[in-house]
Computed example of a mutant assay.
Amino acid sequence: MVFKALVLGLLFGLLAKETLAASCPTILNSTQRALNSTNDVNLCEQFQGKVLLVVNTASQCGFTGQFEQLEQLHNQFKDQGFSVVGFPSNDFNQDLGSEENTAKVCFLDFGVTFPMMARSSVKGQQANPVFFEIAKQSGVSPKWNFYKYLIDKNGAVVGVFSSGISPTDTKITQMIEQQL
């Protein structure tokens, strides 16, 4: 009897995981390594059903100060099903050095608590799966660091914001509120 219950429990667990994978939006259908870590993040498990602001970052860019506003935005809406997700990249030669240095800038210098993925490419054929899908959906690859992409609960890109737009600009905050 106990064995039967255990087998049924495992079977239901596997079916639930398959259902999750089958219903996962393409934009979240990957596993990424967390910044300066050996831990992997299954984006579907972590973010499915949430509104996201996906940002390509660089630790030595003139826009690096936006980490403060990104953190403010994350804290303002995180309890309502929202998250900022950062993707460091050296595609524009502004995130040089080690991933450890990138993590120091994010976590120690700016106090970032939102999820940061490992450094990866965010444009062209080498783009990680998230940014490949962002470009496919929106037609806009990052032209510089700190491009911001608003992703709705269903995994669709619903807003694109260039580097020069502050994360706390009312255009962004109002769109987040509408999506929540």
Rank of each mutant, 00 (worst) to 15 (best):
Q76W: 00
F77V: 00
F77D: 06
F77M: 07
F77A: 07
K78F: 01
Q80N: 13
Q80V: 00
G81M: 07
F82T: 00
F82M: 06
S83P: 05
S83T: 13
V84E: 03
G86R: 02
G86Q: 08
F87M: 02
P88N: 11
P88Q: 10
S89Q: 05
D91P: 02
F92A: 09
F92E: 12
F92T: 07
N93H: 13
N93E: 14
N93Q: 15
N93D: 13
Q94F: 09
Q94A: 14
D95Y: 07
L96A: 13
G97L: 09
G97P: 01
S98G: 11
S98I: 12
E99D: 14
E99I: 02
E100Q: 15
N101S: 14
K104V: 01
V105Q: 08
V105L: 08
V105H: 04
C106N: 04
F107I: 12
F107D: 11
L108W: 00
L108S: 13
L108M: 10
D109M: 03
D109I: 00
D109T: 15
F110I: 09
F110Y: 15
G111R: 08
G111N: 14
G111P: 04
V112P: 02
V112R: 04
V112L: 08
T113H: 09
T113C: 01
F114N: 01
P115K: 06
M116Y: 01
M116F: 06
M116A: 04
M117Y: 04
R119F: 03
S120I: 00
S120T: 15
S120F: 02
V122Y: 09
K123P: 01
G124C: 06
G124F: 08
Q125K: 11
Q126G: 00
Q126N: 14
A127P: 03
A127Y: 09
N128G: 06
N128S: 05
N128C: 12
N128K: 04
N128P: 01
P129W: 04
P129N: 09
V130R: 00
F132W: 02
F132S: 14
E133T: 13
I134E: 05
A135M: 01
Q137R: 11
Q137C: 12
S138M: 12
